[in-house]
Structures are given as C-alpha cells and as structure tokens.
Design a protein around this nucleic acid. Sequence first.
DNA 1: TAGTGGTCTAGACCACGAA
DNA 2: TCGTGGTCTAGACCACTAA
Lengths: 239, 239
Amino acid sequence: MDELLVTEGRALKHVQVREYVRTLVTGAAPGSPAPSERELVHRFGVARMTVRQAMDALVVEGLLERIPGRGTFVARPRRAASRLTSFTEEMARRGLLAESQTLLARREQAGPGVARALNLTEGDAVIHWRRLRRADGVPMCLEDAYLNEVLIPGFLQSGMPTSLYDALEVRGLRPTWAEDSINADIASADEAQLLEVDPGVPVLRHSRRGLVGEKIIEVSRTVYRADRYTMWLQVGAEG
Amino acid sequence: MDELLVTEGRALKHVQVREYVRTLVTGAAPGSPAPSERELVHRFGVARMTVRQAMDALVVEGLLERIPGRGTFVARPRRAASRLTSFTEEMARRGLLAESQTLLARREQAGPGVARALNLTEGDAVIHWRRLRRADGVPMCLEDAYLNEVLIPGFLQSGMPTSLYDALEVRGLRPTWAEDSINADIASADEAQLLEVDPGVPVLRHSRRGLVGEKIIEVSRTVYRADRYTMWLQVGAEG
DNA sequence: TAGTGGTCTAGACCACGAA
DNA sequence: TCGTGGTCTAGACCACTAA
C-alpha cells in the first residue's frame, strides 16, 4: 500500500473515498450501514466505478460487507489471524488475568540454535527474556524469548514492559506473522518446579519465529502445562 | 462464490474471462506472463473494466501479480494457509510416504460431543471413519473423523478414498478453514498398542472442526506420537 | 415503487518499462 | 515509441429488498 506515500500532494480519488469511508466506519458497530455508493458519488463528484473501487478495497480488507438489494454494512470482525495475539491478550480473551514474572532479562551471546533461528551468527548479541506466566495466579507456562539486539537497541534499559508485543508495536516491530512448531513432551525437573507440577507430567512445547515482512524479530520457546492450557487456532483462508 | 450456480445457463462475462485465465494460468510457472488486459478485451469482446474485474479476483486470490508498465504474471505461491493440507499432503511435503489403514468406517448416531461440534442433534446420523496413519511404515497418528451424513450422501458406499480432503474436494466440500485445538497428553493403553509405543508416552491431541464458509463439514480428533510428529504452522496475515 | 448493489459499456489520459 | 497496467468518466440495465 504505497498510496499513503502518494497521499501527500495529490491524493487519488478512490483513496480519498476509501479513507473517508474508513474513518466513518472504524469503531462503528458491526451491521451499521455504510454510505451507499450513489451517496458517495454525489458527495465526492466521482463516477460510481471509482466509488466501487474504494469500497472493494474495504470489502477485501474485511471491514465492509455488501448485501445486494440492501446496502453496504460494517462487517463482523474477521476470523482471527489478522493479528498475532500475545499471551496477555489471549488470556484476556479467556477471561483470565495474565501475570508475568521476569526470571531473567539480559544481553547474551546467541547460541547455535538461537543464532540460526534469528538468522544471526553464533555469538552475536541477543536479548534473552525468561518469564514465568500465570493466569489467575496459577502458573501456565514458562517462556524464553530471544530478540535481535540490533533491531531493538536499548530494549533492556527502557524497563521491561508487561507485554512484549505491545513493546514491539510502538517500535513498529510487532510480528505480523509467525512460523510455529508444536510438540508434546514431559516436564523436566526444573520446569516442573517452576510450573508447580510434578516432574513427568505432559507439557506442550511451542516454538515461535515471529516476523515483520521478511525480518525475523523474535524467537521464543514456551512450555505450557497441558492440564491448564489448550492451544486454539483458526487456520486457513476465508472462503 | 455463488457464481458457480449461475454458470449453467448464462455465465457472467467477468466470470467467463476469469475462468479462462485461470485455466491458462494454473500449472504455469511463477513469473509466466498472463494475457494482457487489452488482449482479453479483444478476445472476449468485452469492456476493459470487465476484464479488470476478472483479473482483480485472481490477484486477490493470489494467483496473479500485476506489475505496472510490464504486465500481469503468475504469482509465486502464497505463504501457506490458502489451503488446509491433508495428512497425505503434509507427509509428502516432508518427503514421507503416507499410508492409511481404515480401522472403522460406518454410519453411527452422533454422541453429545460430536453432535455439538457438527452442530447436529444427538442421535443424528454421522459417518465415523477411524484410521491408523503411517509415515514410511511407522505409525504416526490415530484419527477419528466424523462427517455430517446429510452433506455427504453415499459416502460410505462410494468406496473409501485415500485422502478425505480429496474426496471432499470433488464434492465441493473441501474445508477452506478450520478451528483447531491442540493439547499434550499421555497415550492410553489402547492408543499405545495401535501406535506401537509404550503406554504413558507423551502424545499430541489435535481436534479439528473443518468448515466451508459457515457449513461445518468435518470434525476430527487425532492423537499423534510426540516422538514422531511435530506440528508446523504459519500463522498471521500477509504483510 | 424507490433504493441498493451487481454487472457492463466505450471510451479517456496517465506513468512506467522495454526496445 | 509502443504496450502495459492504473485511474477515471458518465452513463446503462438487472435482480433484489423494503416500504
């Protein structure tokens, strides 16, 4: 979407219409009517095809929904996926209060595994952040996050945030997509102690590589208590 | 996409053009040129806006890519996700030969859990298909799939296919998206015997609800050997 | 019946890329 | 210079919904 760059100076008409409708529509309740195409034709003095081009973009985006013979309406929010959810957000959606206890937050030299995952050279500086995460007070998972220090200078000095994804977002580095792997295993003695379970109980191991475009931002390894956590996913494209 | 229903009789022009281009383009190498818009205008005797409408759909689909001043080309395949992969496809991608042994294939009355998941009433007819799935000869998982019999009449009589998703596809019922839940657990005695592992080893439990649009097609519960299987995912939107 | 979105026409000018 | 896609116009008829 490089139209934004063009916007200063002489904005394209369909972009003007699109952004006008977007401002009307963001925050509106799903099902609210958007302006009709012909109304926008009169308001902007453009051809109907131009209006349709603008509206098409918003429909593809999932913001609007057309109903023939009735009108155009604010769509119900799309099925997940347009945004990677953080642990904090995920717990909130389940009605649980997320808490986070930092066990470790320091600069380290990347080991071989982390270096490969972050596409760095072994020994490069990375930020290692280890947290025990609780939901409604009960340990839920143990997370080790690794960040490429070059991309996030001064991260450790800025005071550790509550939500990693929020902190990345303000830097424009919130991952937009991720490569995940998920496996089942048995809790080690150390993990069991921190998670307050018996050693040998089943756990879910989740590895994530979070990216913005082609840039690898974050690599994390999380071990979840299987008795407390089931992962939910929505996969696949919209029909 | 109800254009398919309209196609018999009088097909819409933009659909004709779109499907013509699609046949030209499927199987072509990424980067191959598609016909130019003006060429299609002449071939079909339609307005350029009509051709653009057809091409727009293919661009949104991710099949084509426009390059201003140069032309329209076959796009590189999108990052995953546009298609739910079946077990057979997934194993093939890992270079493994998938085999499937049917343990059970019959008509049943839906129990409470399956009924709820398929949005049916308890006691409604469902197809239950249980398979032991191997990769390169070694047991990988045990899958129980449930299908709404009303949607797939005569499924059991048609001879069990190799791939459920292929069989659904020819009926236009291949799930386009799914709601999944994933958990870690311990193999039960029965599961362990079929999977050829010791009871109590960790397993990954995967439940799926596969949908086409709003229609629930398939519900499945699969238990994977954790020593043989790690689930890979790409999550999130395109940047 | 009036309004909506869905489709379609027959042109036009522009910026850009390749030759 | 010529062909490409990007944008835009000023209409038109249709099927559908709601009053």
